[in-house]
Design a binder for these strands. Sequence first.
DNA 1: AATGCTGTGTGACAATTGTTACATCACTGA
DNA 2: TCAGTGATGTAACAATTGTCACACAGCATT
Lengths: 209, 209
Amino acid sequence: MPENVSTILAQSELEPKLIEEISTIGRMKKAKEGQVVISPDDQTDEIPIVLTGLLKVLRQDENGDEIFLYYLEGGETCAMSITCCIEGRRATYKVIAEEDSTLWMIPMTYMDSWIVRYPSFRRFVFNAYQLRFEEMLVAIDSIAFHKMDERLLKYLLDTKQAKGTFEINKTHEQIAKELNTSRVVISRLLKQLEKDGRIEQHRNKIEIL
Amino acid sequence: MPENVSTILAQSELEPKLIEEISTIGRMKKAKEGQVVISPDDQTDEIPIVLTGLLKVLRQDENGDEIFLYYLEGGETCAMSITCCIEGRRATYKVIAEEDSTLWMIPMTYMDSWIVRYPSFRRFVFNAYQLRFEEMLVAIDSIAFHKMDERLLKYLLDTKQAKGTFEINKTHEQIAKELNTSRVVISRLLKQLEKDGRIEQHRNKIEIL
DNA sequence: AATGCTGTGTGACAATTGTTACATCACTGA
DNA sequence: TCAGTGATGTAACAATTGTCACACAGCATT
């Protein structure tokens, strides 16, 4: 898997000159699976672009309760970081590496100039916003309009999609935390999904059929 | 209440020259209380800035179930419209006038040029994104982490805040719809809030104490 | 094999929310 | 004044989700 910025960004719609600039200005950051990349109240002045790997974005409240929002994949950027940086606000969400990932960190001082100078960068940024809003709304749909069994199935399918594998290596406890419910509830519903022939369960592993 | 664009925008942080341009280029749109301003699947090429009044933004799914997200007040803009316009996407949300309102509609063809030419406009747009993300996350908190009684109370307090009055003229049915639950549940919880001395109820009217 | 740890299965019950049904109340217009 | 309509109150029950308790399974270490 190539981890060269230019190579990866070449697949985006960014202008070559901009890619050149991004490559010279940013810095590489590696995140091990499970590592917290952004946690609530962090204040940073760098905006991350995901080069390789998979990250997940969660909302966390004061009590430590958390809920899964969406996955961030290669080539994508964290729209919320952009606004936070620009406004100098603290993060109100949490980003965790779901797999070993590499990020390209851009000092936010360059953002404004790039937005002014490169149409493709404007499109990139606004596209990021569009995507994140959309995913946020889908997350809201899930939480507001669907019962736990449907939310669980959607979560499994989304995870399968993002990871590109039929096997999900998570414990019931971990899943319960991301859906903000209890382990017992997840065990119960997974057992039902198993009976319905939608999944197969093994220790620390769920196979989607 | 002044409904002159320049006057109202003068209170914002936009540059005078830009305000001048906005005033000559946009058009006024009035929305009566209850009027649907944007509905799902709409595709527009105008971005609204709220001049006066109050609008509410809702998420609506395929089944027609809906849930309240946040209020849009004077001087604010609809961040989701911006991305939708730029990306040429259809709306996936609904905006309704909560009170008689006036909007200033800007053809989105000017957006790009203004973003390039006016730093204050860039700040305006990114600030809008920041605010909306934040409110969306707060909405998620509410739905995901709180029980219906807390959600209801928060809804009442938010509404009081947005309308700037202690009296809320809504029926239980209307409130139930915005919180995606049933009328009976709302009646039950409002009665409890009344017993607790938090509100007083009259026909079509709730008074916050 | 014995021990310990983590993960999963399950029963029993509580709390919350959703649903149905019906009574009553407040206002409107004939 | 009275019928009609929409709004609210409430009981009874169902469905869903949350909580507690405990059994047991799989794996690693000793």
